[in-house]
Simulated scan of single mutants.
Amino acid sequence: MSTTAGGGPVLGDSPRSREVVEHRVLHAGRIFDLVQDTVRLDDGDVVREYVAHPGAVAVVALDAQDRVLLLQQYRHPVRHELWELPAGLRDVPDEDLVVAAARELAEEADLQAARWWTLTEFCSSPGATDERVVVFLARDLSAVPEAHRHARTEEEAGMVPRWVPLDDAVEAVLGGRLRSPSTVVGVLAAAAARARGWSTLGAATRA
């Protein structure tokens, strides 16, 4: 067992699947499904409803001045325009995670990156959805050639880009002015990794 410097066990979540006695799709949506599981726990069966989600990727794109790219996008469920990282669904079958991240960065921000690392990952709302979001750090940025740029539609068509110094983004998160979960997690993780000389970065995950 791995231990910390203080001698205790390394803190981390543990995968543990319980028996699913019954699984039902209550609503098959265009992107997400609402499902219901009857789960066998130690003291009996319980029923849990949640959103079945394909998963997502998000990108902390940092330029040479340590500015992070944020995109303002309208999010109807919360009735807000949120400042978010470039991000998107894992909706291409068998697509590698870092390939999905590069695709989203190109489609949403017209950018490509020469260097990629895995920054962190999180479950967006584990009591309500099985969504897992993997956050990447992208550096050595350059523009996607005009002829190869993605034509954005719907909410994406009105996205507003803004380059923000990482320290300013941290202050906005801590002040409660940035509330998108990928932005909160990504910005704080990037600042913490930078404070450690980027020694915590992992290789860009491909699956």
Rank of each mutant, 00 (worst) to 15 (best):
S2M: 06
T4W: 01
A5R: 06
A5S: 14
G6K: 11
G7T: 12
P9W: 09
V10S: 03
G12Q: 14
D13M: 08
R16K: 12
R16T: 03
V20P: 04
V20A: 10
H23F: 07
R24L: 13
R24K: 14
V25N: 03
L26S: 08
H27Y: 12
D33L: 04
L34E: 08
V35P: 03
V35M: 07
Q36C: 13
D37E: 13
R40N: 04
R40H: 08
R40P: 01
L41T: 15
V47I: 14
R48K: 12
E49Q: 15
V57H: 07
A58C: 06
A58N: 07
V59D: 03
V60L: 01
D63S: 09
D66P: 01
R67Y: 02
L70F: 11
L71V: 11
Q73P: 00
Q73G: 07
R75S: 05
H80W: 03
L82Q: 14
L85V: 13
P86A: 15
A87G: 12
G88E: 09
L89D: 12
R90T: 07
V92N: 04
P93C: 11
E95Y: 01
V98Y: 00
A100T: 15
L105H: 08
E107Q: 13
E108W: 00
A109Y: 00
D110M: 10
L111N: 09
Q112W: 00
A113S: 09
A114Q: 13
A114E: 13
W116V: 01
W117M: 02
T118G: 06
L119F: 09
E121L: 08
F122V: 06
C123Q: 12
S124P: 01
D130M: 07
D130F: 01
E131T: 09
R132N: 08
V133H: 03
V134E: 07
V135A: 02
F136K: 05
L137A: 05
D140M: 01
D140C: 03
L141T: 09
V144Q: 12
H148W: 08
H148F: 08
H148Y: 05
A151M: 08
A151G: 07
A151P: 05
E155G: 00
E155S: 11
A157D: 04
G158P: 04
M159A: 12
M159L: 10
V160H: 03
W163H: 10
V164Q: 10
V164H: 04
P165S: 11
L166R: 09
D168N: 09
A169V: 06
V170F: 01
E171G: 14
V173I: 10
L174V: 13
S180D: 14
P181M: 10
P181I: 03
S182I: 00
V185D: 04
A189M: 06
A189W: 09
A190G: 08
A191T: 10
R194P: 03
R194K: 15
R196Y: 01
R196L: 11
T200C: 03
L201H: 08
L201M: 08
T205E: 11
